[in-house]
Design a protein around this nucleic acid. Sequence first.
DNA 1: CCATTTACTTATCATTTGATAACAATCATA
DNA 2: TATGATTGTTATCAAATGATAAGTAAATGG
Lengths: 142, 142
Amino acid sequence: MDKKALFEKMVTFTTSVHQVTHELTQNAKSDSITPVQYKILEYITVSQPVTPSEISDCQHISMPNTSRELKKLSEKNLIEKISDSVDRRKQYIRLSKEGEMMMNDTFAIVESRFQSRLQHASNEDLAEIARALDILQTKLFY
Amino acid sequence: MDKKALFEKMVTFTTSVHQVTHELTQNAKSDSITPVQYKILEYITVSQPVTPSEISDCQHISMPNTSRELKKLSEKNLIEKISDSVDRRKQYIRLSKEGEMMMNDTFAIVESRFQSRLQHASNEDLAEIARALDILQTKLFY
DNA sequence: CCATTTACTTATCATTTGATAACAATCATA
DNA sequence: TATGATTGTTATCAAATGATAAGTAAATGG
């Protein structure tokens, strides 16, 4: 297989990944937050504690807009801001108890959809999938 | 590996895929179209000819909004609408010559970034990647 | 032929998102 | 300590997107 064909294959693949991700996550999030707010919460969930700058960099949202959305999430009591004792310009963002509960709920929905997608997979299938994920993670999507 | 752990692995993986997709595609598209318009054009490119309903279904955009964006793309001479001779309610959407050129340009940029990401990969690596893509495509992201 | 359904369009409005400028506070360092 | 860089905020505006209602035209099916 030449690299050109591999590129085509990768395009098809990423399209499928986006498609399936959408199926797994659609309507899983609370209606009280916007898509961008969800994206931010998801990032905080996986990487907390994080600073506003990190959110801005990693989620490709400008600092002013990040600040605005964090303020809204804070007003909804979904996150907490903790200021760094060493560098007082910095802040650390964490989920609040309420935010954690919300994200647990949505992740539970997503996971149950994921599991039902795998219900007919054998143990060998699962091992093969795990191995393929590792390979791609290290060699392509690093 | 149990299914719970596999779910975590999948979450990490899809995050990486989204991240890398973003790196490969950012600033590749023309500034004269919006993100949603690009998404539509990308879908048309891969699946043409397509009907407005298919675009609406697959890209999760309501019919009125799909219609609006297609109209704009048509005004920019990036697509052509061909009405079905059998069922005259239906339309088939294709890229115009100009649209094809635009998409060729952006895909060329994306592909060159992709290739440079793979420049240090051996032939065995490439084969392994291709196989992993196939496995995941059939067993997980179908 | 008439009622219903399908495919698409137009118009309109609210919300979300993106972009920019101006600013405050803190830190680093020359 | 003065200067410049970093971190984050506020305010404001335009553009993009999403949602809904109403309508046209053609097909389908009794």
